[in-house]
């Protein structure tokens, strides 16, 4: 399962994409966020942390099978 990072989360992770091996693959969005915050404590200091699945905002209970395009969306600041 691959996860894309943008903005400040890309800087925190040090990469625009990371892969989760099957044994660590989160089952849903909430689990993905939890794992990321554990691995990168800086994530918990952000104003917000959203996840997009197939380029749509996804709630915590959305299930992940690993074939989706998953992206981490830190606080947006366009305009």
């Amino acid at each position: 399962m691959n996860v894309l990072f943008f903005g400040i989360t890309k800087d925190i992770v040090g990469s625009s994409e990371i892969s989760f091996s099957d044994e660590f693959k989160p089952v849903n969005v909430a689990e993905l966020k939890k794992q990321l915050i554990e691995s990168y404590p800086e994530f918990s200091k952000l104003n917000s942390l959203a996840v997009a699945v197939n380029s749509e905002y996804a709630d915590d209970n959305v299930l992940l099978n690993g074939n989706e395009e998953i992206a981490i969306i830190p606080p947006v600041s366009g305009g």
């Binding site: 943008f6 903005g7 400040i8 800087d11 200091k45 952000l46 104003n47 997009a52 905002y57 992206a71 969306i73 830190p74 606080p75 947006v76 600041s77 366009g78 305009g79």
Partner: peptide, 26 residues
């Protein structure tokens, strides 16, 4: 414009002389 600023995944980094800051991140 108001809704674009709330929901569209675009990120802005402010570059000052001695530092850079991701806007609204913290």
């Amino acid at each position: 414009i108001d809704t674009l600023k709330e929901t569209v995944p675009i990120w802005k980094k402010e570059k000052f002389k001695n530092k850079t800051v991701w806007v609204s991140a913290h």
